[in-house]
Design a binder for these strands. Structure first.
Length: 337
DNA sequence: CGAATTTGACCGGCGC
DNA sequence: GCGCCGGTCAAATTCG
């Protein structure tokens, strides 16, 4: 996945717009307090000279602004190309995940199933442990198989709320409840309602430190769109929609070693955070990659279109912020996408 | 009446 | 081998 690791350093985010000259420009337009007070002809000569100087400065300014505009256009083009390549790589990655999971499922034997998961948990959770090498040596064939993503999400709820229901947008079927030894509060076991097609499971238990916090542990990734996306996509028959079938909650994509997320569901009745981070990238930013940049008009039009569609779309900014923060919080996974 | 949930029984891994 | 423990099953129960 090295190809995913395109360098943002290539994009010079410091716009270097150099606004000072604009102030200088304005200075020309301001009335001069210290005009020559000599005779009329001298005044005319001075004014003519001043106008010529101003004219030259304006032309110069125009030239410079044009150059900046060109620079910005190029930067925006680079950004859009990077965005498109990232999106394509993300789709590829998700498709690979789906295929691997589909190949991996349907082992009726609970033993083999659980041993797979346990091995994955060990590999996933104790990254720093050097003893993992032994396990990977014992099971070299499983090295390349898909690992069940284990993620832990903290949900803050009302303290009076005794239910172990987490509104994360997906539909779950409860199949068990247990009181574990390390925590007096019961642990609930859920399977995705799309099971057995979707292998995702989750465990929900109150935090031992804070009873108002529900700790949800997700295992695996959904191989179907988020229910809200299914509704959104049901009316459209865009081919691209099918390529994102493996969309996963952001929490799951963070992986086990990533930071836990606390969602305050007491303030919003819907899991808006999940929805925000899990939106279908195909539904917005229908920014076609510039195909023909021959004429400046086309360039300008495309740039305007792209800039407006990107900046006006709060989902894009939210997703961008999430992606950036996610990468910053996981410096050791910067090469993985 | 079908779907969803509850809950006790059961299974398998692990440590002693 | 035995007991403990976490996880899952499936019959019973509840709910819409």
């Amino acid at each position: 996945m090295d190809s995913c690791n395109f360098s943002w350093n290539n994009v010079d985010t410091s716009l270097d717009l150099n606004t000072k000259p604009l102030l200088r420009l304005n200075d020309h337009l301001l009335p001069k307090k210290e005009l020559p007070t000599g005779n009329f002809s001298e005044l005319i000569r001075t004014k003519t000279f001043s106008v010529k100087q101003e004219n030259g400065a304006l032309v110069e300014e125009l030239k410079r602004v044009s150059e900046e505009n060109k620079k910005l256009t190029e930067m925006l083009t680079v950004m859009c190309e990077n965005y498109n390549s990232l999106r394509i790589q993300l789709m590829d990655y998700m498709n690979k995940n789906n295929n691997s999971e589909n190949n991996n499922k349907e082992s009726k034997k609970r033993k083999s199933e659980s041993s797979n998961n346990i091995g994955m948990i060990v590999n996933n959770v104790s990254e720093s442990s050097s003893t993992d090498e032994d396990q990977s040596c014992k099971k070299p064939a499983r090295e390349d198989t898909i690992k069940a993503k284990i993620s832990r999400v903290h949900y803050k709820t009302e303290a009076s709320d005794t239910s172990l229901v987490v509104k994360d947008g997906y539909q779950w079927r409860k199949y068990g409840q247990k009181v574990t030894r390390d925590n007096p509060s019961p642990r609930a076991y859920f399977k995705c309602s799309f099971a057995p097609t979707c292998p995702v499971k989750k465990k929900v238990q109150r935090s031992i430190e804070d009873q108002s916090v529900l700790v949800a542990t997700y295992e695996g990734e959904h191989n179907h769109p988020h229910p809200s996306q299914m509704e959104a996509n049901s009316g459209s028959s865009r081919g691209a929609a099918s390529t994102l079938q493996g969309s996963v909650p952001c929490a799951a994509s963070l992986g086990s070693t990533g930071p836990t997320i606390t969602l305050d569901l007491t303030k919003s009745d819907k899991a808006t955070t999940t929805k925000e981070l899990d939106h279908d990238h195909n539904d917005q930013h229908k920014v076609s990659k510039p195909r023909s940049m021959d004429t400046p008009e086309v360039r300008k039009f495309l740039v305007d279109q792209m800039a407006s569609s990107l900046t006006k779309d709060p989902k894009f900014t939210a997703a961008l912020a999430a992606a950036i923060s996610g990468r910053m919080l996981q410096p050791n996974q910067t090469n993985k996408w």
